[in-house]
């Protein structure tokens, strides 16, 4: 079976400081992988390297493209990489403002990716936008409202709709539930889980919230100071952690 994403030996340094180093893993179609670690552990750096937002100092990120099979996204041309980023890839930012056009209506935000790949029929674009807003539980009468009129949870759901409308195969998520209150988080997680299952998505989710990964992720990687310290099945890593740091992390979770 061909992995969807094959990462080898990724390293990114900021001067003398290590962003992340020696990261290797394969992600298979339909798998959801969580990356956990404290602030500054390098998980966001790693995610940005994988998604092509940052250029790593070394390493390979092979993606199974539809046309040509495994290609190194680091060495492919920028137009190709940007094309991937708006078709087969999606990136959900922690702060919805980074992932939305705040001055454009909800429908326009969702429609942008469709228009970016050549959709030129207003009626169809709008119909698809409304369908996707529905899937993320935003009612049709909000389609012409701007995201600035939305609550934080709605903005995040809108961002997800905007990302998934082109049927991507790989979704990068950076703290998708960060900054949301708990009830909104649960709703968003349930929604994400449903979409991941329904669309057969693969996803890489960076978070510091262990409850989030337990619910969403099949596999887990634990990062500490730029290094990958432990990885495995999510429930195994959380229930039977092997590394000092993971044990500390798991035992530090507040019980409700």
């Amino acid at each position: 079976m061909t992995p969807l994403l094959s990462v080898s030996n990724i390293q990114k340094t900021y001067g003398h400081r290590i962003g992340c180093t020696g990261v290797n893993f394969d992600l298979y179609p339909g798998e959801v992988m969580g990356i956990v670690g404290e602030s500054g552990s390098g998980k966001s750096t790693l995610l940005n390297c994988l998604a092509g937002h940052l250029e790593p100092d070394q390493g390979e990120v092979l993606f199974d493209t539809r046309a040509e099979g495994l290609r190194d996204t680091m060495t492919m041309s920028e137009p190709e990489r940007r094309m991937l980023a708006r078709t087969d890839w999606a990136f959900v930012h922690q702060n919805a403002r980074d992932g939305l056009r705040m001055g454009v209506s909800a429908g326009g935000n969702v429609g942008e990716r469709l228009m970016a790949v050549g959709a030129r029929h207003y009626g169809n674009i709008r119909e698809q936008a409304i369908d996707w807003l529905g899937r993320v539980e935003i009612t049709e009468d909000r389609v012409d409202d701007r995201p600035s009129d939305f609550s934080g949870g709605m903005q995040q759901r809108l961002q997800i709709a905007r990302n998934l409308v082109t049927g991507p195969r790989l979704v990068f998520m950076d703290e998708p539930t960060g900054g949301l209150d708990v009830s909104v988080q649960a709703r968003l997680l349930d929604l994400l889980r449903g979409l991941v299952r329904e669309m057969g998505l693969s996803a890489i989710i960076v978070t510091h919230d262990l409850a989030v990964v337990r619910l969403l992720a099949d596999r887990l990687m634990v990062m500490k100071s730029g290094h990958l310290v432990e990885s495995g099945l999510t429930d195994q890593v959380l229930d039977d952690p092997q590394h000092t740091y993971t044990q500390l992390l798991v035992s530090s979770v507040l019980q409700v």
Binding site: E78, P79, R82, R86, R101, V104, S105, G107, G108, G111, E112, R113, L114, M115, A116, V117, G118, R120, Y122, I125, R126, V143, D144
Partner: peptide, 22 residues
Amino acid sequence: RKMHALEEYGLMHVKLYEDIAR
């Protein structure tokens, strides 16, 4: 500039979409 260089013009239609929506 990058959008011109790579002919990424979807955004231009977003403006027209907003017009029709409004």
